[in-house]
Amino acid sequence: MSVQSRPWITDDLVLFQDSIRKFIERELVPHEERWCKQQQVDREIWRKAGEVGMLCASIPEEYGGGGGNFAHEAIIALEQSRAMVTSLGTNVHSGIVAHYLLRYGSEEQKHKWLPKMASGEYVAAIAMSEPGAGSDLKSIKTRAVREGDHYVINGSKTFISNGVHADLVCVVVKTDPAKGTKGVSIVVVETKDAHGAGLAGFRRGRVLEKIGQKGQDTAELFFDDVRVPCANLLGPEEGKGFYQLMQQLPQERMIIALGALGAMERALEETTQYVRERKVFGAPLLDLQNTRFKLAECKTNATVARAFIDNCMAKVLRGELDPETAAMAKWWSTQRNCEIIDECLQLHGGYGYMMEYPIARLYVNARAGKIYGGSNEIMKELIARTL
């Protein structure tokens, strides 16, 4: 389904979509295989993305952004997913971190960091997960202890997208462990000091090797007596971090749902074309009833997903999307995405297992969707609490 036919799309967004698609095809697609092998993108691509308005598209112009809204981020997520270019972590950078800063940052923080993110001078990450705390954010152990006008941070984070290139990291910490969730805060860490040298006590661990999304650098981060100005606290006071996370995670989950939608639609396109051309017993594979029925099921599921996500998008743009509906969109779309791609791979036969075929790359990239942004089991728990 073309982006133009979606009910939340305006004429201006159609033009934006066209420019983003052309940039992806010109600057990202040709390098995706190489980036997957080196487990990270070239640093310069961030600057190029900034030049064409692909970064911070939904951030106000006064902070260096594109002046758009979440629909712009949705188009970027859909187009990257459709093109199978998962290496450039714009969703985390622009769709997530930038909005933490916009929503909770002081004017000084916003003017200091957002323009650098919009230009690609800074790459941003958010550090939530730890070796012993993934979806259970209440169990994080990273501490930030106040000493004078600085916080001293100790702890480690893992599965951090954009971790290798990150110049700016929103670190979820405990500022008062005795208060439980009310003792959680977010402190923004610039990974270089005022002289451009690496920040003392901050280390990047190994790039984690994944089964899919191999070019999206995912790293471990270590904080050993890292000193950060107290002015880098996100929000006016300590203890608001858990609230901030709960407020912003629905948008992250919508981005994940949009990515799943783009992938399942690409899988259907690839498989429909393949079964038309592939001959079995002297006739196209599409002539077999099983093939037609399987694709009919896949198309129906993708159409339902599209309708649900379009409905969610309308709510997002009206400011009406509630957390439980976002959780529904995230788990349902990522689950259906994996199922649809699995069926489509099966119709490719042995060729579906070969990485030279797009369906194989879609298959390995899809699986993480059921885990990140809060596992699907957690999504169901959030939904169940509203019953």
Rank of each mutant, 00 (worst) to 15 (best):
V275Y: 04
A263K: 15
M264I: 10
Q289K: 11
V226H: 01
N232E: 13
E265A: 02
F281D: 14
C230V: 15
R266Y: 00
Q273L: 07
K294I: 12
E265G: 08
V280A: 11
I256Y: 11
L249N: 09
A283F: 12
V275Q: 02
G241T: 12
L286V: 09
A263D: 11
L233V: 13
Q247F: 00
G259F: 01
F242R: 08
A283I: 14
R292G: 01
E269A: 07
M254S: 05
D287M: 09
R292H: 04
R278M: 04
A283Q: 14
F281G: 01
M254A: 14
E252V: 10
D287K: 03
L286Y: 13
L233F: 03
E265S: 04
G282A: 05
F222T: 06
A267P: 15
V280I: 15
E270C: 12
K279R: 10
V226S: 00
Y243I: 12
Q244L: 02
C230F: 01
E269T: 13
I255S: 11
L285R: 12
K240R: 15
V280N: 06
Q251C: 02
L245E: 03
T291I: 03
Y243N: 08
L268T: 11
Y274E: 11
R278Y: 10
P250M: 10
R276L: 04
R278W: 04
G282Y: 10
Y274N: 06
V228N: 07
L288M: 07
D224S: 06
P236I: 10
E237S: 14
P229N: 08
A283E: 13
K240E: 02
E238S: 12
E269V: 12
A267N: 06
G241N: 08
L234N: 01
L286W: 10
Q248W: 00
